[in-house]
């Protein structure tokens, strides 16, 4: 009984926070837009009984999903989001791995402090941190003023309102999600494995490639997913730091929802986004499972 209760908790969580909202969104995606409160039809009217429920289901259709195929905007936005998410994940890995490696190599007594420093930015509002990047990256911002002062550039660099700023924003925001799993993989790494590799004829660099990288693979994969998945649906960073050319599905969704007041189409876009996200999430889960099996648990 106690076991059942314990298992029920995460499932209840999943039901309330994932399944129920998803069903609501899915239902709206099958509706039609209307000038009313709420701005779609049909709505479920339980007072008219069984007839009402039947009429409700009869009025649902896949029209909004077919609509998404009629305009290249949508698949272009999905593709562009995938591209931005993939590139920023890669860049985050390139920045995060050395940081995690440095942390794992540092003396034991420093590690809690370094870990703290990685987590520290979370103590400030995400929005404020992204806003402060606007201050850093704008034409009159700190970065340009500094570069102008050093004489490295003579004209301010246009970074804010371009994809560059979006990449910087995503890397900055999600870096801890990359560092922490890699760090935890590297921290577990037995230093004697590297000595063994050297002893068997590896230089330090080959030992790194043949031992450190493969053994931190699980951390790398976990970190990449933790960055890729939220980056794909990211809205705040591209809308604050990106320019008008930054095409991401989060922004398209916003437009459908707010500018067109077309909740059904917006919901259809969201359902598709979720399906796209489910693929990496399932891959991630399988990878985790494989890892657990590999560790013989």
């Amino acid at each position: 009984m106690r076991r059942f209760t314990l298992i029920a908790v995460p499932y209840f969580w999943l039901l309330v926070l994932f399944l129920v909202p998803f069903i609501i969104v899915f239902k709206i995606s099958l509706s039609d837009t209307a000038l009313a409160i709420p701005p779609y039809t049909p709505t479920l009217d339980l007072s008219s009984g069984w007839e009402g429920i039947r009429g409700f289901f009869a009025a649902l259709d896949w029209e909004n999903f077919t609509f998404l195929t009629t305009d290249d905007l949508y698949w272009k936005a999905y593709l562009s989001s995938l591209q931005i998410a993939a590139i920023s994940t890669l860049l985050t890995l390139l920045v995060g791995y050395p940081v995690a490696y440095g942390m794992a190599q540092s003396p034991d007594e420093w590690r809690p402090t370094l870990m703290m420093l990685v987590i520290l930015p979370f103590w400030t509002s995400f929005l404020i941190r992204v806003y402060s990047w606007m201050g850093i990256l704008s034409n009159e911002g700190f970065l340009n003023q500094f570069l102008l002062w050093t004489g490295l550039i003579s004209e301010p660099l246009q970074i804010l309102n371009t994809n560059k700023a979006v990449y910087i924003g995503i890397i900055y925001t999600y870096l801890p999600f990359m560092i922490l799993p890699i760090y935890s993989a590297l921290e577990k790494l037995d230093a004697s494995l590297l000595e063994a590799a050297e002893d068997l004829g590896c230089s330090r660099i080959t030992a790194f490639w043949l031992v450190t990288i493969p053994l931190s693979k699980q951390g790398i994969i976990a970190g990449c997913f933790l960055v890729f998945i939220p980056a794909l649906g990211e809205f705040v960073i591209p809308s604050l730091l990106g320019g008008s050319k930054t095409l991401m599905i989060g922004k398209v969704l916003w437009e459908e929802f707010f500018s067109n007041r077309d909740w059904p189409v917006a919901s259809a876009v969201a359902v598709i986004l979720l399906l796209i996200l489910i693929i990496p999430i399932v891959l991630f889960q399988r990878n985790e499972q494989k890892q657990r099996e590999a560790e013989g648990q």
Binding site: D190, S192, E195, C202
Partner: peptide
């Protein structure tokens, strides 16, 4: 002379087998 250039091999206390 670094470890990888010595005609010496070591068996580690933890065995240090590569788990992958």
């Amino acid at each position: 002379v670094p470890p990888n250039k010595r005609a010496v091999n070591m068996m580690f206390q933890s065995y240090a087998l590569f788990p992958h």
